[in-house]
Structures are given as structure tokens and as C-alpha cells.
Design a protein around this nucleic acid. Structure first.
Lengths: 196, 196
DNA sequence: CGGGTAAGTCATTCCCGGTTGACATCGGGC
DNA sequence: GCCCGATGTCAACCGGGAATGACTTACCCG
């Protein structure tokens, strides 16, 4: 997981009094901190400081830590339209991405860390499930089409998640020939699930 | 995640004064609670109560919450010998397990929840990585053998993890024909990774 | 049987972090 | 220019939960 200390200390950008802007700043900071440290590990004071705001404002704008978390979660599960993925290139693109460093996709990786955090927290899990079904599984089902959509969608999602977790956990990506093989096999595996 | 309330209230088995036994009881309770609620969500008082012991003893035996968590983690990553898995039946067995309810394998599921918790906690992640490499990845590499061991092992581990996460997250397993298809395809997928 | 040590109990302290409410200040509209 | 509501600040409160240490009780050994 990302070290939080590196997250703060960068944007004490003096903002003119602007409720909308500070709200957005807080939300952005919250997403980072929740992703890096989880619900309990993220502290409102830190988030506020990172956003260049006062902790009390979190209460005003989000109604407490729970509200902030829910808002951040909702904001995180709004990925680009799955429906527009390329049916042909998809598998290879994903495979290549998975073979690389997690850092290379900082934005996405953070979002995923966040979701994984939410998944492992009994308080936030139900919230997550609902959102994932609606904004991830449903589009996938739609996208792959064909027979046995349900089984294939679940298996595809599983593989996808597994790859993301593995990438998140490991220290070093593969290199050289092993890397090529990994990409090739991963791509083949994904493609087979998409195609039928 | 599991509801903690159901975990307690069962074994106020009056133990004779026995340091080793209480230590073990505490450790067992800790594994359950950490798995169900995560590091922050698990309370020492609850764990102690569940183990029929006093919270102060945790301090005595494990040197604080951190120590207890580390001990529980170490104790959780000692799964049965991978090397003895059946090369033929493996894929189908796993697939069938993954198609079922997480509850059905309470023991294992708990252990996995626990590991996932550890993975998403910045403090415990490094500890986990080391243990996983040594006690999971290495045996897998050994077990599958053949060419491109590294790539195949990683992909296999990814799929495995993904299936576990998916099973953990979802509310309802598949049923009927979809379930059969799911098992069949999952088994095929795993087997292909094992065989070569 | 009696004393000493390990095992277990209890009350208390301490700290941390979310929350609250009173206060200060900005900025736009009259 | 001035006034009022919206925005932002500050200090204090409060609860929960881990840690501490003094105390009590059981067991075992001589």
C-alpha cells in the first residue's frame, strides 16, 4: 500500500472561499487516504490537512466520516464505460497492464486499493457490493453477451480481480521471456472468456 | 464478512490454570476476530472474552495487539502441504469449492479473509508478502514444474486469489446450469495452468 | 501443610481521533 | 460602504479501547 506521508505536503494551494472547491479537495484527499490506509487508518485531520481545509468542514459537507467514505466510494466506482472496450484488443491490453508495475497506473491502482479496502471492512462491504454489481458486473454481462453470461462474467471478474490483487501485492514484475509468456497466456485466458 | 456476535458465546469452557492452553485459546479467538473484523475492528476485550480469558493476559503473552496480530498471521499461513495436492483432481475440486458458499469452508474462508485483511493493511502487508512467498508461492512453483514456472505460477495464484475474493464478496452462488458451466470452465482454466 | 511463583483479575490511566459548538472572517448584494 | 449569510477556524469535549500495574488466587513442590 502507498505510504501516506508522501501523499500530503504538496498542495497548500490557497483557495478563495469556495465551498464547492473545498468540498472537491476534501473528496480527492479522502480517496487517496482511504485507498492507502483503509477506513480506520485514514484520519480526518490528515485528510483535511491534505486538502488544505479544516477537519470541521468534513462534518459540515459530508456529515461525518461515514458520509465522507460513502461519497468517496461512490465517486471511485465510476470508471470509464466498459461498453466501449475493444473486443479484440482488450485481452492483450489488460494482460500487458497487469504485467507492469502498479505504480504505472497510479490513478486506477488507487481506486482499486480503495475498493479492496472497502471489501475487507465489514462496515463498508455491503455498500461496495451494491455499487459493484450495478456499475461493474452489469456492464460486463452486457458487454460479453453470448451464452452462459452469468458464469462467464463471474469467472472473468474473478480473474480480473485476482490479477489486480497479485499486481498489488508483489514487489517485482516479471521480466524477459517469462514476462512475455505471462502476457501471452493471460491474454489468451481473458480472450477465451470474452469470446464465448 | 462474518458477524462477530455469532463467534463468541460458545465456549466458556472452564479451563484449569494452564498458560499454554489459554495462550492457544486467545490465539484461536484472535484469528477468528481479526478475520471477521480486521485489525482495527477486532477488540482485545472481545477476543479475550471469547477465549474465556482476561484482556490483560494478551499483553502478557503477546506483548500487545500488534504482537497478537503478528502471531495470528504467522499461525494462519501454515496451510496443508501443497505438494500433496492431486494433480488430476485438483482443478475440479477447487472449481467446485469456488462455486459453493464461503460458509461451507468456514475454517479456510476465515483464514483467507484474514490474509486479505493483512494485505490491505500497510503495517502488515510486508509481513504477509514474505510469508506468502515462502509458504505459498514457492510450493506452487515446485508443484507445477515444467516450463515457464514463474509466469504460470503467478497466473495460477492470481486466478486462485480472484476466485476466493469473488466468492467472498458475492451474496449468492450460481445455481443450476450456470453453476455447472462455471465449474467446468473454471476447472479447465486451472487445469491448463497446472498441466503446462 | 505452607510458602512461593505462575496464572489470572480488576480498576485505572492514558491516548487518540471524531465530533461539536462557539467564534472569526470573507465576500457579494443592497 | 456596510451588513448578513456563507465559509472557514479554533479549542474543547467525549467516548472508546489499549495498556499498565497492583492485587488475588490457584497450583505445585518441598
Amino acid at each position: 500500500m502507498t505510504n501516506v506521508s508522501t501523499l500530503a505536503a504538496e498542495k497548500p494551494v490557497a483557495r478563495r472561499r469556495d465551498a464547492e472547491a473545498t468540498r472537491a479537495a476534501i473528496l480527492a484527499a479522502a480517496k487517496k487516504h482511504f485507498a492507502a490506509s483503509g477506513y480506520d487508518g485514514a484520519y480526518l485531520r490528515d485528510i483535511a490537512a491534505d486538502a488544505g481545509a479544516d477537519a470541521a468542514l468534513i462534518n459540515r459537507y459530508f456529515g461525518g466520516k461515514d458520509g465522507l467514505f460513502a461519497a468517496a466510494l461512490k465517486d471511485s466506482i465510476a470508471p470509464d464505460a466498459i461498453s466501449q472496450w475493444d473486443r479484440k484488443g482488450f485481452a492483450h491490453d489488460v494482460a500487458k497492464m497487469m504485467a507492469g508495475h502498479a505504480h504505472q497506473n497510479a490513478e486506477r491502482t488507487h481506486a482499486f486499493e480503495f475498493l479492496l479496502q472497502a471489501a475487507t471492512n465489514p462496515i463498508t462491504a455491503p455498500l461496495l457490493n451494491e455499487a459493484v454489481q450495478e456499475r461493474f458486473m452489469d456492464p460486463i454481462r452486457q458487454w460479453i453477451g453470448g451464452d452462459h453470461v452469468e458464469a462467464r462474467a463471474r469467472l472473468l471478474a474473478s480473474v480480473f480481480i485476482g490479477l489486480l490483487v497479485e499486481r498489488l501485492i508483489r514487489d517485482e514484475p516479471l521480466a524477459g521471456a517469462e514476462r512475455e509468456i505471462f502476457i501471452e497466456r493471460t491474454a489468451a485466458l481473458l480472450q477465451s472468456l470474452v469470446d464465448n
